[in-house]
Design a protein around this nucleic acid. Structure first.
Length: 556
RNA sequence: UGGCCUAUGGUGUAAUGGUAACACAACUGAUUUUGGUUCAGUCGUUUAAGGUUCGAAUCCUUAUAGGCCAACCA
């Protein structure tokens, strides 16, 4: 409820303003958007921004959003990608009205091309790609039209028909729009509409050997679907002129294109080409490697859909170049997980503690599952006279602000007793092998009558009850904030320590029942989630994100 | 040497001609059986120069900086 209040207080972004204006003027009864991925890679956090935008807008203003695969280039597109994209959109929590494909419109698009030819607005060009590039001029010099532009409508019709029939090899001919070779906008210098590709298409198979270019497919697809607001990223701004030209000449439903700045994030890369490279060259284990900025990677890492949605909403959109701090995303992940994650105790680097005055062999203690959520219940934790604590929770000669265990000092064991360090045992090499402590019986958690106040509380695990698990600690994939902007190859900036594996940690028994996709907070350690690599023989946990650690910062 | 887009704290976004603000980050302090959470506070911003105006982050001009455009990619 307070979240609703907040969103109402929040001001409109420039697209919401446009839409509210359109609605006010009665331009549309409802708005229709689309999310138009090309199935040539997995979706990343930048796409999540677009998804939240497109689906969020129609949810807010009434209308619907289509999922449309922009599959006009058969050589890079695969069904695997189609499936992953659908999974990701669903997981993010959105429902599309129609699942569509640009390839659904290939017949229609072919008709559109014929229409343009008949209007004298398109021609078949026999030039090579090099010739076309040369004739196009440069941003500062106008281009020149070649002789093929003079072909008759009849000839163009016949040649285009022959292109479709497979009479020509790849690259032998193209269909171009006849617009303006001298336009200051390079896109308008007789852009290519169709090219020949004798390639198998993931949906139309071998039906076609000519395929429309983006500029001749996207706007028309929008138009066919009656998209009211076609939202894309800034690099398509110059294409808008052609987008509008096609709609005007074809006299079809006038969809309109609006552009916003793509989302960049620190310490990662966001282009599908680069991500594909990381996958292909095995710098990561796959598209869903938890270090990847992909939606599937983040999901596997333990980021929640709610956190991603909140991130997209709260960061907002604009038209300026940006690189958002990955720390902001991590903030929303922590904010969400703090409310939801069950608390568990896990010791990563064990140091044995023996309670010398503990007479019973063991007892069962209870602890809250999540202090932030009273409905989360409690769990049982076995306690005994032999425990593990974290090695860095003990210091033989502590610094002044060190609140943890040290000779003669007392600490609280979380949900258990206060203990006092009496003796330090070392091996011959001088390594600490064991800490001997006494406990304060009347300091039991929940019924503490000891009157003792301690500054530090430690997590712990009973030695004989501990279960084992593997832990994967992830760090940023790159060492620098913007790997793409530096000199040289972005891969030069890969962080060699982005994955640290701890083969065996000691966990409290309650963790045995961990489920995939359940998030846990390992107390004082961070948020973790069970990885799909886990088997019956061993559990593997991914670190989603660490806890804020002001002590680590202060002690530096 | 063409055209287009954009410039607000460290970062991301507001303010729509009328008091420059919110979140994150950073820093203090309080609370705390997680050095977590929570709470209170501090820090710091309109690229520059002109112009219009009673009044400009906002409108205009110029400059500067960054981005995009010369793929048979999207």
């Amino acid at each position: 409820m307070s979240a609703e209040l907040k969103s109402e207080e929040r001001s409109l972004n420039f697209l919401e303003e446009i839409i509210e204006q359109d609605l006010k003027e009665g331009k549309y009864k409802q708005i229709v958007t689309r999310f138009p991925p090309e199935p040539n890679g997995y979706l990343h956090i930048g796409h999540a921004t677009s998804i939240c935008l497109n689906f969020g807008l129609t949810k807010k203003y009434g209308g619907y959003t289509n999922l449309r695969f922009d599959d006009t280039n058969p050589v890079t597109e695969e069904t695997e990608y189609v499936e992953s994209i659908k999974d990701d959109v669903k997981w993010l929590g959105f429902e599309w009205k129609n699942e569509l494909y640009a390839s659904d419109y290939f017949d229609k698009l072919y008709e559109f091309a014929i229409t343009l030819i008949k209007k004298g607005l398109a021609y078949v060009d026999d030039s090579t790609s090099e010739e076309i590039a040369t004739q196009k001029g440069t941003p500062t010099e106008p281009g020149k039209r070649n002789k093929y532009a003079d072909r008759s409508i009849e000839e163009n019709l016949q040649l285009f028909e022959e292109m479709k029939a497979g009479k020509y090899k790849d690259g032998e001919k193209v269909l171009r729009a006849k617009i303006d070779m001298e336009s200051p906008n390079m896109i308008m210098r007789d852009p290519l509409l169709y090219r020949i590709k004798h390639a198998y298409h993931h949906r139309t198979a071998d039906k076609w050997c000519i395929y429309p270019m983006y500029d001749f497919a996207h706007g028309q697809s929008d138009s066919i679907e009656n998209i009211t607001h076609s939202i894309c990223t800034l690099e398509f701004v110059p294409h808008r002129e052609l987008y509008d030209w096609c709609i005007e000449k074809l006299e079809i439903y006038p969809s309109h294109q609006y552009e916003f700045a793509r989302r960049n994030m620190t310490y990662t890369v966001m282009s599908k080409r680069k991500l594909l490279q990381l996958v292909n060259e095995k710098h990561v284990t796959g598209w869903d490697d938890p270090r990847m900025p992909t939606i599937s990677g983040m999901r596997r890492r333990g980021y929640t859909a709610a956190a991603l949605r909140e991130f997209c909403d709260r960061v907002g959109i604009s038209k300026r170049e940006n690189i958002v701090d990955v720390g902001l995303l991590e903030f929303f992940v922590r904010e969400d997980l703090n409310k939801k994650a069950l608390r568990r105790m896990v010791v990563f680097d064990p140091l044995k503690v023996v309670i010398t005055n503990y007479a019973a062999s063991e007892e069962i203690l209870t602890s809250e599952n999540n202090p932030e959520d009273p409905n989360s219940g409690t769990r049982e934790i076995p306690f005994s006279n032999e425990l593990y604590i974290e090695r860095d929770d003990f210091m033989e000669t502590p610094s002044k602000k060190y609140f943890r265990l040290a000779p003669g000092q007392m600490v609280r064991l979380k949900s258990a007793y206060i203990i006092k360090c009496e003796n330090v045992i070392k091996d011959e090499a001088g390594n600490i092998t064991e800490i001997q402590c006494t406990y304060i019986p009347e300091s039991k958690s929940g019924s503490d009558t000891s009157g003792i106040n301690v500054k530090g509380t430690l997590h712990w695990v009973s030695v004989k009850h501990a279960i084992s698990a593997e832990i994967r600690l992830y760090d940023r994939l790159f060492k620098v904030e913007d790997p793409s902007s530096g000199e040289g190859d972005f891969k030069d900036y890969i962080n060699p320590d982005s994955l640290q594996i701890i083969k065996s940690v000691f966990a409290e028994p309650a963790l045995k029942n961990a489920h995939l996709a359940d998030s846990y907070q390992f107390i004082r350690k961070g948020y973790f989630v069970l990885d799909k690599d886990s088997s019956t023989s061993g559990m593997i946990f991914n670190r989603t994100v660490g806890l804020k650690d002001s002590w680590a910062k202060a002690s530096k």
